[in-house]
């Protein structure tokens, strides 16, 4: 299975890359690690006329410490580089918890975190993670740079807030509140490894009651979302088993729950409740 023929560009600067995107509206796709895109092209599920290979853009490499205690992840940072980064794993343990299970070693060596976010597969894990971390996404085009909150980035299956002439250049993760715990729990489709449902939790207690609750959910609907009904129900409780279970019952509220051969909507919604509950329990267990 060979991809259909395409034009190929290898820009040497971000400015050049976004210029190529602007000159080829709707016909160019960005190629980073290629672990999602090349597979789709080989199956001819995607047939872009032009690939803009950003693999050579040194300015998009690397993980930086932000002065506020947060983290900036360049668009070319691979899953493997995050797992190998003491900075990333210590400041934001949730990243490694989710990434360790993505694909396999070969996919993690090549696939990029930002590529997964820009691709916005409804069964991918990273969207739930950046939602729970309240990350921002830095986006460049010919007319400059803008910063989008993850909560307004994911719009549907493979659809994001990115315009055709825009390139996702960096993920910025703010410092997380002191004392919070983090966890990722998911139900994998055993053959593909994609998440049927996935839940990322950042939860913390102050003085015996829950003061931070951020839950990102993927796999359940067309786009990853913040389970705001769960969060609202959890805040102010003691975070005991009963409170967590009652809050997690809202995990699939307000979204159109998807249905496919692996999980119908009833099962998928139930698995969302189960994995949100488990993620909250584990996050609280890890909280300082």
């Amino acid at each position: 299975m060979i991809p259909a023929a395409f034009e190929y560009d290898r820009p040497t600067t971000v400015a050049e890359a976004v210029d190529i995107l602007a000159r080829n509206p709707g016909t160019a796709k960005v190629l980073a690690g290629g672990q999602s895109l090349l597979g789709l092209m080989r199956l001819r599920l995607a047939r872009p006329e032009r690939l803009v290979d950003i693999g050579g853009l040194a300015e998009l490499r690397g993980i930086r410490a932000l002065p506020d205690g947060g983290l900036a992840i360049g668009a070319l940072v691979t899953y493997r580089e995050v797992l190998d980064s003491a900075l990333a794993t210590s400041r934001v343990p949730l990243l490694a918890m989710a990434i360790a299970d993505i694909g396999d070693v070969q996919v993690r060596n090549r696939g990029t975190v930002a590529g997964s976010i820009a691709h916005a597969d409804p069964a991918s894990d990273m969207p739930a993670v950046v939602l729970a971390l309240e990350a921002s996404l830095v986006v460049r085009s010919g007319s400059g740079e803008r910063v989008v909150n993850a909560t307004s980035f994911f719009e549907g299956a493979f659809v994001t807030d990115l315009a055709e002439d825009e390139l996702l250049t960096e993920i910025r993760i703010p410092a997380q509140p002191t004392g919070v715990g983090m966890a990722y729990r998911h139900l994998e489709q055993p053959a593909s490894g994609y998440s049927i449902v996935g839940a990322a939790a950042v939860v913390g207690r102050t003085g015996g009651s829950i003061t931070t609750a951020r839950i990102g959910v993927t796999g359940v609907a067309d786009a990853a979302y913040r389970a705001s009904a769960v969060e609202a129900a959890l805040i102010g409780t003691d975070g005991g088993a009963a409170a967590i279970a009652a809050a997690a019952a809202h995990a699939a509220e307000g979204v159109a729950v998807g249905s496919d051969i692996h999980a119908d909507a009833i099962y998928r919604a139930e698995m969302a409740r189960v994995h949100v509950r488990r993620a909250i329990e584990a996050a609280l267990g890890a909280a300082g």
Binding site: R10, Q35, L38, R80, Q106, N109
Partner: peptide, 19 residues
């Protein structure tokens, strides 16, 4: 199809030669 690219295992069916 696993080979090493810059010392890391990758699936060479999902990398373009030009990359």
């Amino acid at each position: 199809c696993t080979v090493h690219l810059d010392g890391r295992a990758v699936k060479s069916c999902t990398v373009l030669a030009i990359q």
